[in-house]
Design a protein around this nucleic acid. Structure first.
Lengths: 208, 208
DNA sequence: GCATGTGAACACTTTCACAGCT
DNA sequence: AGCTGTGAAAGTGTTCACATGC
């Protein structure tokens, strides 16, 4: 029983555990064991227990974990127990699709605005999310208390956009541009590199 | 000497090296050192050298790496030295955006067809890529010698789609559905979990 | 009996340090 | 001098094994 820094990969797995727990709750399960949780995740039961132990003692020995209680704990850890406001920068094809893709909303995130510079986009909206000119970014970030941003701009524009976001007070950026970004130490960046992911697969698959 | 199995994270970094090398080539550099390569990648020079050493000896001591030659070697390793055909399954918002997103094409991948079941989508096309009914998947995979697939269907449909892909002969799947997939041992899957990525950031950012 | 929580063993990655080539 | 390639050391993450409790 202690308070070590959580292994980085463990945090990634928390989301997966939470998703599985929600599925279990939906089908009426009240308890779940580490073995059951691990099964679908191609992980081991030990790993599940270790991961969860980083954040507290949630289980009952001999019984397992209470599905609803554990889900609530994980939501607290991930800070998705209340809705989190998010802004999107870059309302092109990919950005639009990320808003229309309902997955973020279902997990407690809400896009309050999208930003772009193209005159033909500014003023429109995507599924009700208004597209504003990027000049209004700082104001929106402030008004909506936004801490998280999704960046889907061309890579040559990414660094500049991130600078603006940091200055506006955003502290987490999910970046889809294939570019390494410099940020001040208090800002976390998450990188989603679609082309690199496919190249990695290409390597594993091997020859044509 | 060498010929060890490449560390998994090293493969991921190869794509990033390659991208940086292409940028260097475009601006006319002929040589680059591991230190220079590492700079932009927030890695260390040792790591760059170790990563590259897994796949051969590409550098010249005292000099560094030849930009063009190293890029070619990496493309060979990643199997992107020739165009690789890819199919998309799921022509919804996300799937369409992935085709329109030019990033895959720029790195040697070509979408030869998209597949869906919705009658209003089948028969249309996205940037010239035809949307076919999924019944025609096996034929297309065979005709175009497709080994890689991108899956952007709802998660409840993902497993079934992957089963069909495997049966058709695909050996690598990049899956955007938030679901863990069972595949035969010869099929690699790459997972891109957008919601989980944002949740991970949410954790790091902490309190509102 | 069964399942958690956890220290200890193990495996994998990264960093260090330096030999060897230019 | 500068830079690569590589074994050895350090660090990080995962699995094992079992004590503890239901």
């Amino acid at each position: 029983m202690k308070k070590q820094t959580p292994p980085n990969p463990a945090v990634k797995r928390l989301s997966l555990y939470l998703r599985h727990l929600e599925a279990l709750a939906a089908e009426g399960s009240r308890n779940v064991s580490s073995t059951q949780l691990a099964r679908r995740l191609e992980g081991t039961a030990s790993q599940v227990r270790k991961d969860l132990a980083c954040f507290g003692q949630f289980g009952r020995r001999g019984v397992g974990y209470d599905v609803a209680a554990l889900a609530n704990h994980l939501r607290q850890v991930l800070r998705t127990d209340h809705v989190r406001n998010v802004v999107l920068v870059g309302a092109g094809d990919l950005g639009s699709a990320l808003i229309r893709f309902g997955g973020f909303g279902r997990r407690g995130f809400k896009f309050v605005a999208a930003f772009d510079v193209a005159p033909r986009r500014v003023g429109a909206n995507i599924e009700g999310v208004p597209i504003l000119h990027i000049d209004q970014l700082a104001a929106a970030v402030h008004n909506y208390h936004v801490k998280l941003a999704v960046v889907a701009v061309p890579s040559w524009a990414a660094q500049q956009v991130v600078d603006q976001l940091c200055q506006a007070g955003v502290t987490g950026v999910l970046n889809f541009a294939p570019a390494a970004l410099d940020t001040p130490g208090n800002v976390s960046i998450g990188q989603v590199d679609l082309a690199a992911s496919l190249e990695e697969l290409s390597f594993r698959v091997g020859a044509d």
